[in-house]
Amino acid sequence: MNSNSTIMAAEKGTSLWEDAWIKLSKNRLALVGLGLLIFLCVISLLTPWIAPYGYEKQDLLMGATPPSAEHWLGTDVFGRDMLTRIMWGGRVSLMVGFIATAVALAIGVVYGAVAGYVGGRVDAVMMRLVDILYALPFMIFIILLMVVFGRNLLLLFFAIGAVEWLTMARIVRGQVMSLRKQEFVEAAHSLGLSQWIIIRRHIIPNTLGPVIVYTTLTIPSVMLLEAFLSFLGLGIQPPQSSWGLLINYGVETMEEYPWLLIFPGIALSLTLFALNFLGDGLRDALDPRTAKD
C-alpha cells in the first residue's frame, strides 16, 4: 500500500492506480472477495475475545461429536470445540499465509526483475543460483534450521518464504525479459526516459498480472506447507493448531468424523476463493491494456 501511495503522489491526474481502483470497485466478485478476507481477518483478530470455548478445553468422556446446538461445528476426539479451534487455527494460518507469501513476493519479485532486466551474465549467475536452491534437499534444510535457531514462528515464515520465492523469481524474470524487448519499452528507451521510469511505468505494471495470479496460488500452498513444517517440529505445537494441521488430522478420520475435515476445509477454501476473486479483479484492473480500452 505504501508504494501505491508514493506512486500515486508522484503521478498527477488519473494514474494507473486510481484507474485500477475505480475498475476494481465495479467488479462485484472482487469486492465480495475483499469483504470476505476482511471478515476473516477481523474474526481472527477478535478470536481471543469472541471464541465460544477455550481452544485447549478438553472433554475426553465426550470425545468427537457431530455439530450440535452447544458445539456448532462439532467437537474433536478430545471433546474440544471445533469452531473455537478453527478460529484459533485461522489466526496462525492467515498470518503464515500472508507474511510468508509477502516475504516470498518481496524477494522473488526483486530478484527476478533484476535478473530479467539486467540480463546477460548477471542473469545467468542469478538463475543458476536459483537452480541450486531448488535442488537442495528441503527437509534437511528445515531440520537444520530448527536445530540452529530453535523453534519460533518468525523462523517458520522465513523458512517458507525462503522456499517459495524461487518460482516467483523465475516467473517475474521470464516476464521482464520478454517485456524488455517489446516495442513500447524500446520506444521509451529511444525517447530517452530514465531506467527508473521505464521500470516503474512499463515493466512493473506489466508484470503485476502474473505476479498477482501466482501470489493467490502461493498463499494456499504456504498454508499447507505450514502443516508439514509442524510435522517436522518446526511449526506450532499442540494444543495450538492451524487449518493445515486440522485438515491433516481430519483426513485421518474422514470416514469416522467427517466434520473434522469438512469445516477446516471450508475455512481454507473460503479464503482461497476470496483471494482468487480479489486477485483476478486486481489483475484485470491493473492490466495496462484493458486500462486503455
Binding site: I132, A135, L136, P137, I140, I143
Partner: peptide
C-alpha cells in the same frame, strides 16, 4: 556447461547440510 559448477555447488552444499544434520 553452466550446469557443471551448479552441480558441484549442489553436491558441496548438500554434503555439508547432510553431515551437520542432527
Amino acid at each position: 556447461l553452466q550446469a557443471i559448477p551448479v552441480l558441484l555447488v549442489v553436491i558441496t552444499m548438500t554434503f555439508m547440510l547432510v553431515h551437520s544434520a542432527p
